[in-house]
């Protein structure tokens, strides 16, 4: 998320405020292709490219600093999964915020520009505050997407069920746990399956809350200008 939000937001701002129509017409569909790529492909990308790359880079860094060429980032790590998920979320953030920024009324923009503010000042001081609730709603929607994301994490973050905060090592998420519990040959009523269902409910409730709150914010914001 730390990665997706700035990139997505800035591209949205640029698209909505600066880009010429021709640039917008080419760049926007291209970014939306990113949204159309199935998550399993991102998972494979993480597994084959990003994971080993991060491992090697960390080995090099570690070697430069301490002289010991062992990598401190493992190939399957939370960092890998997070980074790739960030790539996946860029188009979501950017197209949602783009919509919201373009909804800010023209008059507010003209007023600020007319008072002599530069465009970036207009964006920072007028448009962003006006669009903030909508953007927050969009970000919450994106966050609920990230929580429910499965395939990238299955392939990229590993299955080690450890409670820790070090993002450089393998960890697991709720969705991965469900997949692992349920892909074997098990009796339907066995405790393992029931655990998976409990996890599913938890996941559902979390995302539902995020979604309802986000939709509420987005709706409330929309009504202001219509």
């Amino acid at each position: 998320m730390l990665f997706a939000v700035p990139v997505g937001l800035f591209s949205a701002i640029y698209m909505a405020e600066y880009a010429r129509p021709s640039v917008r017409a080419t760049a926007k569909p291209l970014l939306e292709i990113l949204a159309g790529i199935p998550t399993i492909v991102y998972g494979f990308f993480a597994l084959v490219t990003v994971g080993p790359f991060l491992r090697d880079i960390s080995a090099e860094l570690n070697g430069l600093v301490t002289g010991d060429y062992t990598s401190f980032i493992q190939a399957q790590s939370v960092l890998t999964a997070g980074l790739v998920m960030g790539i996946m979320l860029i188009p979501f953030v950017s197209s949602l915020s783009d919509d919201i920024i373009t909804q800010v009324p023209r008059a507010m923009r003209d007023g600020s520009l007319g008072l002599g503010a530069t465009r970036s000042e207009t964006i920072k001081r007028v448009i962003l505050p006006a669009a903030l609730p909508g953007i927050v709603g969009a970000l919450l929607l994106t966050a609920s997407r990230a929580v429910g994301e499965t395939m990238i994490v299955v392939l990229a973050a590993g299955v080690a069920a450890r409670l820790q905060l070090n993002p450089f090592e393998p960890m697991t998420t709720v969705t991965v746990k469900i997949v692992n519990q349920l892909t074997g040959d098990l009796e339907f009523t066995s405790p393992q399956t029931l655990v998976a269902f409990a996890l599913g409910i938890t996941l559902f409730v979390i995302t539902l809350c995020l979604n309802i709150y986000a939709l509420y914010i987005v709706r409330k914001y929309r009504e202001q200008y219509e």
């Binding site: 990139v7 760049a27 990113l34 188009p91 970036s120």
Partner: peptide, 20 residues
């Protein structure tokens, strides 16, 4: 600041396209 801000925007879009 204006130019810098603009650069951020271009950089963000280029990052997205680069990853694509």
């Amino acid at each position: 600041a204006e130019r810098r801000f603009r650069m951020y925007g271009i950089a963000a879009i280029l990052t997205g396209l680069f990853f694509l």
